[in-house]
């Protein structure tokens, strides 16, 4: 048994290490990254940091935590998944939760992290690969017939439908209509709060009622378990078993008495003065002879 226990803890630690180790070399939750919007023919649309109208790719972080795209690969050739390596070590490659990042497909990789070594062409497939260069995170085939300055993107951030968008939105939500908050939508149907009261009270009651039902039955089980087992009586000896039930109040009084006894505070503590002989063993570090200056021997 002891042997099993000895192996148990290192075993659990090893498993945890292996599980956490699988993330090594991968971008954090890079699987949440997806292409969101592209522009192939940029005549008068957004300009890059060099003032150029270049094709662009927008990537969306669909997760609810920050993801670093650094280390991942972008390509326009599925046979060459590691065509453009997104540099690491820069905070600018971190994409905030539910936010966007834009890459310029201008074939000018010397212009910075966000400038790719390919351009966008109709009929080609662009793809995003994980840091291992093998795991495909997302891909999109660019259909023919792309219009100048009209972007092709997801209808909404979480949609799988790709459409030509009425308005290009690099670095922003594709659905630019004014959105109502969850609360506003709720109150539209329930302006006086009656619906909320009914639903919420039902849920609170349901949660606690389930707890009640479970505990009622668990309680019954434990009461039965705690009940004294019937004593087998013989005709010779009749034993009267007096069952004495102690109430919670009695228990509480006993517990309080014990607590007071154990945590009793003294005004005067018992004190014992101890004088022990301290023995110092010889050490060359403390020896007087070694601390004296040695007289040179002139003989």
């Amino acid at each position: 048994m002891r042997k099993r226990k000895t192996y148990l803890i290192p075993g659990i630690l090893a498993i945890l290490l292996i599980i956490s180790g699988t993330g090594i070399g991968k971008a954090q939750n890079a699987s949440s990254l997806r292409f969101n919007e592209i522009l192939v023919h940029n005549d008068s649309n957004a300009v890059d940091d060099f003032g150029q109208h270049s094709p662009w790719i927008e990537i969306f972080n669909s997760s609810f935590n920050t993801v670093n795209i650094g280390g991942c690969y972008l390509t326009d050739d599925l046979n060459n998944p590691t065509k453009y390596w997104i540099p690491t070590g820069t905070p600018s490659t971190k994409i905030a939760s539910r936010y966007y990042i834009v890459f310029w497909a201008d074939n000018h990789p010397t212009r910075g992290v966000f400038h790719l070594n390919f351009t966008l062409e109709e009929g080609k497939t662009i793809a995003l690969f994980d840091a291992n260069g093998k795991t495909l995170l997302d891909k999109i085939e660019i259909p023919a017939g792309q219009k100048p300055d009209v972007t092709f993107g997801r209808k909404t951030n979480d949609s799988n439908d790709w459409v030509y968008l009425d308005k290009s939105t690099p670095g922003a939500d594709n659905d630019y209509s004014k959105k109502k908050s969850a609360g506003e939508k709720f109150v539209e149907f329930d302006p006086y709060g009656i619906g909320m009261t009914v639903i919420a009270m039902m849920v609170v009651f349901a949660a606690l009622a389930i707890l009640y039902v479970i505990y009622k039955n668990i309680g019954k089980f434990f009461i039965r378990k705690a009940a004294p087992k019937p004593v087998a009586l013989t005709s010779e000896s009749k034993v009267v078993v007096a069952e004495e039930e102690m109430s919670g109040e009695v228990n509480a009084a006993i517990a309080m008495a014990l607590y007071l006894y154990q945590s009793e505070m003294h005004d005067y503590e018992n004190t014992v003065l101890t004088i022990n002989k301290v023995s110092r063993n010889y050490s060359p570090w403390s020896s007087k002879i070694y601390t004296l200056r040695k007289i040179p021997n002139n003989r």
Binding site: G193, M196, A200, M201, F205, L211, G219, G248
Partner: peptide, 21 residues
């Protein structure tokens, strides 16, 4: 020891939703 008392804890939350209304 007396699980039905749990439900009182649910009923008193009426104050929250009364104030919400």
């Amino acid at each position: 020891s007396n699980p039905k008392l749990i439900l009182i804890g649910a009923a008193a939350q009426l104050g929250i939703f009364g104030a919400y209304c």
